[in-house]
Simulated scan of single mutants.
Amino acid sequence: MKAYNVKVIDDYKESLIILYGASLQGKNVLDMLLRAGIKPTYFCDNDPNKWGNKVNDIEVISIDMLKKLYLKENNRKIKIIITSMYINEIMYDIIENEIECDLEPYYYTKFVFDAYFLSINAGKIRPLKDKYLGERCFVIGNGPSLTPHDLDLLKNEYTFASNKIFYIFDKTEWRPTFYGCVDDTVVNSGYMVDEFINMKVEKMFLLDNWQYNKNIYGLDKVMFLKSKDKLDKRKIEFNYDISKPMHIYYVTNALIEIATYMGFKKIYLLGVDMTFPTEKEIKEKKYHNYHFDKRYVEDKEIEIAIPKSYNYEDDVKFTINSYNIMKRYLEKNEMEIYNATRGGKLEVFERVEFDSIIKK
């Protein structure tokens, strides 16, 4: 698949780029440009306290300096990207100073580069379609029933794991074949970058929020999953093509969808206990027994990840509904899914004994 908007990207590369607004938004746009091999010439800002400072080795200048640059480089095309919330004010300043340039707000730039990298990423994902056709695999949850012993028995199987599975690595030689993380809490904190880099897996599937992280996007093993703009829990659907924008609900759902896209015909769940803390347990901070390791959830993460509107019964109902939709899709497409979890509350999928399938 050819990359979208290549000519448009080339236009950025041939222009002298100025980011107007040495802000967090400016830093985000900078990361985006750098991934495409485009280094802006300057940041510009109206705050005198920022003049002369540097953002990622790029100097911050005043609009007076920008005008001098324009007069000096009048034979070269200048593109100014407004990376500030004060878009109208900055536009007025540029017009008043008679600086002729291509002018665009940061959200337009983001749209262009998101589309460009979405097409590149889709081109990386599509060769995985049906690559493992007819094979079986195990989707590993992070519930309290998961044990190192069971994982040791899966060393020669195709396995998918997620999130903080690395907390069990010091107790087993097993490592997942594939890994996924679609948790906004993890993305926003950024503290798992080292784990992503060091994890030895064939493929890693991350939320596209990571696609401009310079430590991540250069890794060959990484594929980015593009989430749709708005998650509507009233309209649950199965994402049969992971190269396109997806409704991403929970990581286990995403791993199952990835496995079916890759051609696996028989999927076993292990450690998918489907246990959730109640509202009372969250308030009392009694949520450390819902995963295989008590270190799994930190108090500060709960405050970010669990909205004040969290409702235990609604969460369980939504999860069951999403699994039922998955089950119907898989049955319709002649795929099999079984629950090999030891215990737990998930009864949507047919139960099988883990020990018996390992012997096959």
Score class of each variant (00 low, 15 high):
K79V: 01
D93Q: 07
M91D: 04
V55I: 14
L71E: 08
R76M: 11
N75Y: 08
K79D: 00
I82E: 05
Y92I: 15
G52D: 08
Y86V: 07
V55P: 03
N88T: 01
S62K: 07
N56E: 10
D64R: 09
G52V: 09
L66C: 13
K72E: 09
D93W: 09
Y70H: 12
S62A: 06
N88I: 12
R76I: 10
D64L: 12
I82P: 02
Y86L: 06
D57Q: 09
M65A: 07
K68E: 15
I81A: 05
I90T: 06
S84L: 08
I61V: 14
I58Y: 04
S62G: 05
K50I: 05
L66P: 04
I78Q: 04
K50W: 03
I95M: 14
K79S: 08
T83Y: 06
I95Q: 09
K68W: 11
I63E: 15
S84W: 04
K50E: 02
N74S: 15
I90Q: 04
K77Y: 05
N74G: 00
G52I: 04
I90R: 01
V55A: 01
L71M: 04
N75E: 00
I78P: 09
R76K: 10
V55W: 00
D64A: 13
V60R: 07
M91H: 05
T83W: 02
D93L: 10
I90E: 00
I87L: 08
K77E: 11
W51I: 13
Y86R: 14
D64I: 09
L71F: 05
E96A: 15
I94E: 14
K54H: 00
K50T: 01
I94R: 05
K68R: 15
I61H: 15
L69V: 11
L71H: 09
D64E: 13
I90F: 11
K68G: 11
R76F: 04
I82Y: 08
I82T: 01
G52A: 07
I82Q: 06
I87C: 04
W51C: 10
K79N: 03
M65E: 07
I78H: 08
T83A: 00
K77I: 12
E89D: 14
I81E: 09
Y70G: 10
K54F: 06
E59L: 13
W51E: 02
M65V: 02
Y70C: 12
N74F: 10
K77W: 12
R76N: 13
N74W: 10
K50M: 10
Y92V: 11
Y92R: 13
S62Q: 03
I82V: 05
K72M: 05
S84D: 01
V60Q: 01
W51G: 01
K72V: 02
M91E: 09
D57V: 06
N88Y: 13
M91P: 05
S84I: 08
I80E: 12
I94T: 02
K68D: 15
W51Q: 06
V60S: 01
Y86K: 11
E73N: 13
N74Q: 07
N88E: 14
K67Y: 15
L69F: 12
E89P: 01
L71S: 07
K54Y: 15
Y70I: 08
T83D: 01
K72W: 04
V60Y: 06
K77R: 12
